[in-house]
Design a protein around this nucleic acid. Structure first.
Lengths: 118, 118
DNA sequence: CTCGTTGTATCCGTAGTGGATATATTCCGA
DNA sequence: TCGGAATATATCCACTACGGATACAACGAG
């Protein structure tokens, strides 16, 4: 599972990691979260989603969670996933890059001139 | 050139648009800018760069600039590009999305807990 | 029991990416 | 001024990610 060199994080993979950073979730829930977060401008199809999940699991960045929903009636179809420690690190690394891009965009005047101290 | 529906902005395309948002530049300069901005974690190969530039130009998001360097000895090889109005809008739209992702990452605790008012 | 919905999984065509290669121009040292 | 290294653009090819279609299992409502 765990590989020596850090595998590259694709855009879709980051969306999944970001969704799971807020807590464990199942595939369908991730789809909804991404669509909602991005206002519908990013929509993961089932193909992309489940293949991405499989690849992230194979790389040891996410792992299947034992399904803890006690208030829900327990849906046997759902498969819950959560971040591993390595997954969290990878997500944080990528998030830092995203933040830098957003900063550069702000400096270039692309954003509505947010208050930026520096 | 200009198309009816807004063409999707690929990751590489956004890097190029972001670089050009700071001012006109030539291909090789864009490569260096992207590599420097991202600390080397993102590197556009020549294939990706020039194909992306061609596609952006065909979509009317960038256009060739007439080369205005007066202090430089004028290098005839260089081809300068700059954003069009539509290119700026597309870049701004994409930058807004990036900013939202960064915000979500911060809320999830992925970033080093930057000061966020809300 | 039956039907529509939820949820997961796989397949396939398309497109973006990255690296190698080719070629022309400029710069610099001998 | 001659030649070689570096700069800069451009194209080609293999690989992989992506998106949509499709299939199928399990749940809930009537």
């Amino acid at each position: 599972m765990a590989k020596g060199n850090p595998p590259p994080i694709t855009p879709a993979a980051f969306q999944v990691l970001l969704a799971l950073a807020r807590g464990r979730a199942h595939g369908y829930g991730i789809m909804g979260f991404v669509s909602e977060l991005t206002g519908g401008s990013v929509q993961l199809g089932p193909g992309t989603l489940y293949r991405t999940l499989s690849r992230l699991a194979a790389d040891g960045l996410v792992e299947e969670a034992p399904d803890m929903s006690e208030d829900q009636p327990h849906d046997a179809r759902r498969r819950y996933y959560q971040l591993t420690a390595r997954g969290w690190e990878a997500a944080a690394r990528e998030a830092e890059l995203i933040r830098r891009l957003a900063g550069a965009a702000a400096e270039a005047g692309l954003l509505g001139r947010q208050e930026r101290s520096a």
